[in-house]
Nucleic acid binder design. Structure first.
Length: 279
DNA sequence: CAAGTTACCTGACGGC
DNA sequence: TGCCGTCAGGTAACTT
């Protein structure tokens, strides 16, 4: 599930359960994720350490501890994290477990194993984290992510606008679903060349991105309030899809038929009337 | 340098 | 029932 809103909701949900808890041990399934999980190193360096913070950057979660060490999580396509009782049954794809000092565990579950668990143990963790995100685009809600910035980045690019806003080096956190949803809401055809958008269109698109992501966070947050033992996959945001997965259905704006095309290997949905090819 | 392709994995689903 | 192809929310390393 994890695009920016889902990762943000998971972050907020987990924070309450993790803050000021002490990690007592770390266990791994031994399966390879996107990168090898440094299980032994985490076990050695995190045991007995208190958790100071959990935050989000792009689609990543960052957990920091009192000793300065940090874990950077990425949920890939199918990853999920939750807090469980230590005695509860370990599920098939629970690949990493961080046992806490109150008989609960943080569990990282990921069937498809496109996710990743990076460990930063140096004293200069802050600097390394900064380095880790050096090539990541600005957060959509930040001042840096302005119309001027996006226009400038888009100027030399002819790729489809949908691919462009999904590029996390340009802007962080937008995946296939929210790319589809925001372009529909802004009335912009997903195959428009990035460089062809006017300043007014960029202004509309950016505000639509912000509004849509914010709304999705609010919806997710309202339903997934307790992560303890929960699967965490019951987000309310799905109710708000207007275009994603709706090929052949009628557009909510104009009643026309929603089309599905392939852009860069990803399913793309649009309304030919509300999102015209040329302006 | 931009843009396109491929690889990494499992599971769910539809057709036969 | 099962076998097969297709598809799935992401990212980075390739090639062109």
């Amino acid at each position: 599930m994890p695009e920016l809103p889902e990762v943000e909701v998971i972050c907020q949900g987990l924070l309450i359960h993790l803050l000021d808890r002490t990690i007592t041990s770390v266990h791994c399934s031994g399966k390879q994720l996107r990168a090898t999980v440094p299980c032994k190193e985490m076990q050695t360096k995190l045991s007995g350490k208190r958790i100071c913070d959990l935050s989000r950057r792009a689609k990543y979660l960052i957990l920091t501890t009192e000793c300065g060490a940090a874990i950077i999580f990425h949920l890939g396509m199918t990853g999920n994290m939750g807090i469980f009782d230590v005695k509860s049954t370990i599920k098939k794809h629970d690949h990493v477990r961080w046992t806490l000092d109150n008989n609960t565990e943080l569990r990282f579950n990921d069937p498809r194993r496109f996710g990743a668990v990076h460990f930063i143990s140096t004293e200069n963790a802050a600097e390394e984290i900064h380095h880790f995100f050096a090539n990541t685009g600005p957060e959509p809600f930040s001042r840096t992510c302005s119309v001027a910035y996006l226009t400038k980045r888009a100027a030399p690019r002819k790729i489809a606008i949908k691919k462009f806003i999904m590029d996390n080096h340009v802007i962080a956190g937008i995946g296939n679903i929210y790319a589809n949803e925001t372009l529909f809401r802004a009335g912009i055809h997903p195959e428009r060349p990035s460089c062809s958008l006017s300043k007014a269109e960029w202004k509309l698109l950016l505000s639509t991105i912000r509004k849509t992501l914010k709304h999705a966070i609010a919806c997710g947050g309202s339903t997934i309030s307790d992560f303890r033992g929960a699967s965490g996959d019951g987000g309310y945001f799905q109710m708000n899809f207007r275009i994603y997965g709706k090929a052949g259905q009628n557009c909510l704006n104009c009643g026309g038929v929603i089309k599905k095309i392939n852009i860069g290997g990803r399913s793309s949905f649009f309304c030919p009337t509300c999102q015209p090819e040329k302006v």
